[in-house]
């Protein structure tokens, strides 16, 4: 099989405050033989603008898709939100001729046209479908045996089913399987598929904090030593906001939240520094002692 080659779409929030995700993803993908090409030019995926105007979201997303079509490569996203808007827009515009004509009308104003020639994938599907479990398993040089973690895939990498259609949103297994390849144990816990709450944190903090607190409770109750995410927004909710959640509920979690490529990277033999683990808000000091 030829080497997988993707345009990396980092979106906004990763370069803004979560380079650790990008750094670790680039490290592991490079070693796994996935070639990443930089987007020549891009803008926000469009997702946050959907609340204002649906056509605006579709057109902003389509502009990025047109750029990728011009390069002639599929897009890989690291963010669930970017995956949601780019993948959904791509599928809708490929299927709905009338809507495609409308959006192409807007795109014509900037000299672009959506043709529907590329695909959009999230990191976890590039790993599971293109790289394959066998190759990842073989790349694990330092199995994380004895480590017990839990996963939070997040919503938009799974839902809505009719646009994603890869993993089962009611019982997702992709991220769990990917975690198990590292040698770590992946624990089941209550309400695994519940949303992190981050998307509405800008309008209301009470609800998202309660949602995230409940999730941290459930993860802790099964004895997980870390929570593994594959979306920057979920990660911010559980890592960056963890001290605030602790203060709001007068609880101490001290639960490290790792981006999946950080966990995989450790198992592949990268150092914590190479994977930017020092950038996490909740320091994984104990965790790193466990796997030494």
């Amino acid at each position: 099989m030829s080497q997988p080659k993707y345009l990396l779409f980092t979106g906004c929030v990763i370069p803004y405050r979560l380079s650790s995700y990008e750094i670790s993803a680039r490290k592991v993908l490079s070693k796994l033989g996935v070639e990443l090409v930089e987007m020549p030019e891009y803008n926000c995926c469009g997702y946050p603008m959907d609340v204002i105007n649906h056509d605006l979201m579709l057109t902003l997303a389509a502009k990025n898709l047109c750029t990728a079509e011009k390069v002639g490569l599929p897009i890989m996203t690291l963010c669930n939100g970017c995956f949601c808007s780019l993948n959904e827009t791509n599928k809708i515009l490929k299927e709905d001729k009338k809507l495609r004509e409308k959006i192409n009308g807007y795109l014509k104003e900037i000299g672009m046209e959506f043709k529907g020639t590329i695909d959009v994938k999230h990191l976890i599907y590039v790993l599971s479908e293109d790289v394959g479990y066998e190759k990842i398993k073989n790349a694990v040089a330092k199995p994380l045996s004895g480590l017990r973690v839990a996963q939070h895939s997040g919503c938009h990498v799974l839902r809505p089913r009719k646009y994603v259609g890869r993993d089962d949103p009611e019982n997702p297994t992709t991220l769990k399987d990917l975690i198990r390849l590292t040698g770590a144990e992946c624990l089941d816990y209550m309400d695994e598929t519940e949303c992190c709450g981050n998307p509405i944190i800008g309008v209301n903090e009470d609800v998202p904090f309660q949602m995230a607190k409940e999730k941290l409770d459930h993860v802790r109750s099964v004895g997980a030593q870390a929570l593994i995410t594959c979306c920057p927004f979920c990660h911010i909710m559980f890592d960056l906001n963890q001290p605030r959640i602790e203060r709001a509920f007068n609880e101490k979690f001290n639960l490290p939240i790792l981006h999946y490529p950080q966990l995989l990277g450790l198992a592949m033999g990268f150092s914590p520094e190479e994977l930017a683990l020092n950038e996490l808000r909740v320091k994984p000091t104990e965790l790193l002692n466990l796997i030494k």
Partner: peptide, 17 residues
Amino acid sequence: PKTNLKDVLKIFEVTGS
């Protein structure tokens, strides 16, 4: 990469946003 802002603004304009 730098965004083509002119095009982004055009999209805001033509979609009425």
